[in-house]
Design a binder for these strands. Sequence first.
DNA 1: CATGAATGAGTATTCATTCAT
DNA 2: GATGAATGAATACTCATTCAT
Lengths: 212, 212, 212, 212
Amino acid sequence: MPKVFPEYREEAKNRIIKQSVKFFSEKGYYKTKMAEIAECLGVSKGAIYQYFKSKEELFLEVIKFYVEYTQKDLVAFLNSRPPKDISTDEFFDIMFNIEHSTSFENFKILDKLFPPLDFKLAMSELMTSNPLMKEEMTKYYKDSIKLMADYFENYKINGFIKKDIDSFSLSMGITSIQDGLMAAMQMGIEISEIRKSWKEITKMILKSTLVE
Amino acid sequence: MPKVFPEYREEAKNRIIKQSVKFFSEKGYYKTKMAEIAECLGVSKGAIYQYFKSKEELFLEVIKFYVEYTQKDLVAFLNSRPPKDISTDEFFDIMFNIEHSTSFENFKILDKLFPPLDFKLAMSELMTSNPLMKEEMTKYYKDSIKLMADYFENYKINGFIKKDIDSFSLSMGITSIQDGLMAAMQMGIEISEIRKSWKEITKMILKSTLVE
Amino acid sequence: MPKVFPEYREEAKNRIIKQSVKFFSEKGYYKTKMAEIAECLGVSKGAIYQYFKSKEELFLEVIKFYVEYTQKDLVAFLNSRPPKDISTDEFFDIMFNIEHSTSFENFKILDKLFPPLDFKLAMSELMTSNPLMKEEMTKYYKDSIKLMADYFENYKINGFIKKDIDSFSLSMGITSIQDGLMAAMQMGIEISEIRKSWKEITKMILKSTLVE
Amino acid sequence: MPKVFPEYREEAKNRIIKQSVKFFSEKGYYKTKMAEIAECLGVSKGAIYQYFKSKEELFLEVIKFYVEYTQKDLVAFLNSRPPKDISTDEFFDIMFNIEHSTSFENFKILDKLFPPLDFKLAMSELMTSNPLMKEEMTKYYKDSIKLMADYFENYKINGFIKKDIDSFSLSMGITSIQDGLMAAMQMGIEISEIRKSWKEITKMILKSTLVE
DNA sequence: CATGAATGAGTATTCATTCAT
DNA sequence: GATGAATGAATACTCATTCAT
């Protein structure tokens, strides 16, 4: 009779979240079943409800977890070197998968390409009916953009990035490209095409952005 | 119009599709209920099934409708003048809403901003379970990209766009930005922010793309 | 705009019945759809309702039609010669299909093996809910048995069949064997096995029945 | 019994099957509603789906249950004495109802005459659309015939039955008579008529079959 | 008479959530 | 805490039947 670490409530929650991340990201919100998550965890459905009072709450925590880890990961990477030293290939990899993930060992559970778009889709579906979630998600999204914007801002000071660039717009633009290419990937476009497009576009953007 | 006329069926289908577009785009696939569409149309559920044999089929036709009209609209706009004369503002408008829609008067039914991302999310959810739909959607997506790429290709010949630009990558890049910014909009980012980001990014891209 | 012989109501009914016979016998009552019958007839659903006020009524008439024709056919055959001259093979053929059908040219529409069991199943299902139908069906069944019993009775007088045989029981026995073997056939038993079993059993019965 | 015990599931399934047997046999497959079974059992519809994933699966298990118990019952009876000692009355009783049922006390739930023909009808309806079911049912039917054939074969060795009798054909013949008379019963023929016919026919068959 | 669009009651099935054990 | 049986509201889809044209 498996238990979800009775000693550590927090640890139990985390185990559930990490498992759920996989399901929600691979199958979307509606096609992910509570029973499925429970079974995969070797736990009863009821157990999950001990930690999360509903599927929506679980999903919300899953999103939080994902965004947080992704942000930390991205920031760690960005701060490791100035923008001109970042190759578009490396940047592509960090934006599109989690191979470079260094910050958290638990991230290993994300052992496959992570499709944030699916999250956003599920999120946007839920946001309609749940204003609380909407608020929360907007906050996360903005924080995420802000994080990258801060990085750019920092390099403006250092003289790597042109002064007249709006860091926030740039950050949002790059994030949008990532999201949009993710969508393209899901539409069935081959990864090589995605990568090529990414390189072309980021090259153009960097050319206008970086102080040469 | 008398119901026995063959045109009637076509018109009835269109009426259903147009109504469904609203629901699917606003609420997503799963939260849109057949009963709801029917009620809004003032008909019984059964009536819808006379024209579409399942919710999935209806959704597929809704997508087709949207893509087709959007493409026609975009192409009409693009072909109306060379890239250097296209203001980013105009381009934004055409990419993000349908105010400029000139080709089809029926488009009036889309009286609000149209969120393609929701479609793509719903599509991607369905594509997993329905390989036929996957195939069809990939085709639509690629066609859509191709359309814009052809336009760029054309202006390469005319000397407006640099010869070394990969039209397909450029087209995919711009489409991706649009999709990604749509997502941002749904995440709760204000339209003014979206517009600003769009202008910044497209400006950068155009600078690298256009023959000055 | 095809019509079901506007001139002759009776003829129109018959056309519908004959088409319906096929569907009901092949697919059973519940899986046969009114739309299907109509389409196959090249006629609208509404047209059928001009002649039969419901699916049940149509089915009832189909049964009547079948029983009547089968009876006439069987009697014609039986009366054509004394029991001792009837080979079990011939008897099998007449009982299990309608190749020998001589009485009605319209019978040609039954161009394949006819499965009375399906009828009886559908009938028995309907008989529960419709007492009127139950009564009617019982009458038909009894008439059918009686017909064969009369034939045996006749040959008792002629001295072909032993005096102490109960004609009605014999008739019912033979009919039952036929019905039961039909069921076996539908259970997936090969026709050769059915035929062999039929020959064995009828041989035994005839041996006890016929005056040698 | 506490619900966590593994036996509970088995018992719950059996309770559902036994209730379903009644409905399916009395009303046929299509007129039996899941809601009806559930209500009669005093549970929700959902509960049934915890044990059977569809109506078809439930039906299949109902058939299995019936066939299995009937076979055991018949075999127990047949093996209790040689064919010449089996009165046609006793044989009728065992073939047509379950009064003699000795093997399983649970059989008590079948508190009324059991109509296998209805099953076979419903089965045949489903067999068309479900090849898996067809296969399974054919197997059951053949096994059932084989069982009785083995019994006859055994008595051929013992010298009770003539050597030149084909046991399989005989078994199929007798089974068919039973099925056919069941049909007659459902057509509204009185039980006394059925019994008389059964006795006449089996007498004839036994006369040709038994070594006197 | 014929048509076929529309109806709407009916049904199997799903699944998040609860709660007795 | 954990379990998993039970719940029941929700939903897509069917099809005989009707009726305006």
